[in-house]
Amino acid sequence: MLLLQLLLDGIQSGAVYALMAVGFAIVFGMTRIFHYSHGATYLIAGYGFYACTSVFGLPWYLSVLAAIVLSAGFGALVQLLVYRPVQRDAGSFFTVFVASFGVGVVVENLLAMMFGSGFLSVTSPLSRAQPIMGLYISQLGMIIVGTAPLIFLALNYFFDRTSVGLALRGLADNPDLVTVYGLSAKSLFLIALVLGSLLVVPAAVFQTITAGLTPSAGHRVMLISLAATIIGGIGSLRGAGLGGLLLGVAESLSFWRLPAGWSDAVTFLILLAFILLRPSGLLGQKVRV
């Protein structure tokens, strides 16, 4: 029974990790930008949602909408004001990474100045778990476990069937080729950033209600997203989803026998194992090592 409960909790956090990771996977997979400020996007979505519900007293759907607008806007700003100028003369992978990191640091500390460094959360009766045949799961948990596959299905459709999606997929391999879809590489980068940013909203809202927010949470979100993306295989969205799920389940099951202090190490041992033994990840294309 305990094992079953741990598995259930693992699937729930796995769904959240998958949703955290998918935005990063899109940006990293399509544009090869090491988007460290993905963690900052998460914070902006989370704090935006918190401010709208708890400070301005807006209903939840408007707050979610505001979080989407804020995070998408932030993604666009980062692309236009930071990544594009840095990359104007073929900035190296690392130059972009450092700039992105800098953005993350600025956002984290601005939020800490505005909202304080403490813990904030939005209270909702939906986060209360009820026992069903001895197993505890909250309504919100069911919602997130249900939402995740829907979002991945929609993304699948977008990337397989629409011309923008196909162009984005082509961007990683051959930036010149994508012009045949009638879109410039510049605008595709912008689309990738906006899409990747707004996709973090469900995970951010869910976490704000269940686990709560602190300004330093961004680093962890980033680490999980990176780990899930690499485990899944860079360039594969389904892979990132599976990677997130795997990490969530592994973390939760590790509580069964190991002291809880080791759960982070478990996550990153899995990551290291993948990097060393199977750098192409679960579903990625073969990587030259």
């Binding site: 680490l223 780990a227 996550t267 041992l269 290291l272 060393l276």
Partner: peptide
Amino acid sequence: AASLGLQVI
């Protein structure tokens, strides 16, 4: 990524 993981471990 590997070095990040190493740092956490």
